[in-house]
């Protein structure tokens, strides 16, 4: 059994249009075509097996000069966790002062990734 997914590679501005074929034959393998370099293949397989994204957002802020503090994940998190991550951020309210890089949420969703402040306020 095999199925094919089309995607655009974002490893560089070339934007190769790739086709990733999933071959399930005892073990699952991926065949990437359309890429013009090895980074394309790497990206394609990662997107099929464990796509991850950085999440940038804000949290509520007390006694800052703004109502919101910008934050991000310290590393990319699995794509399917983005919604959960947003829900967690909604419940947080930070009190200043905060320094850029301060950990706002430790070990987000048990992913061993933190939410950190992206500015001082």
């Amino acid at each position: 059994m095999s199925k094919t997914v089309e995607m655009i590679c974002i490893s560089c501005p070339m934007g190769c249009k790739m086709a990733i074929e999933t071959i399930t034959n005892g073990v699952t393998r991926y065949k990437v075509s359309g890429n013009k370099c090895p980074r394309g293949e790497q990206y394609g397989v990662k997107e099929m097996t464990n796509p991850t994204r950085m999440v940038t957002s804000t949290v509520k802020m007390k006694n800052g000069h703004l109502n919101r503090l910008p934050v991000r994940t310290s590393d990319a998190i699995p794509k399917y966790k983005i919604s959960e991550c947003m829900a967690v951020l909604k419940a947080v309210e930070v009190e200043g002062p905060v320094k850029v890089g301060d950990v706002i949420i430790n070990n987000l969703l048990g992913l061993e990734i933190d939410i950190i402040a992206t500015r001082s306020m």
Binding site: M7, E47, M48, K79, S83
Partner: peptide
């Protein structure tokens, strides 16, 4: 609340 699910390439 995030009203939309993130498109999940795993369920294609």
């Amino acid at each position: 609340l995030p009203s939309q699910q993130v498109a999940d390439s795993q369920d294609i």
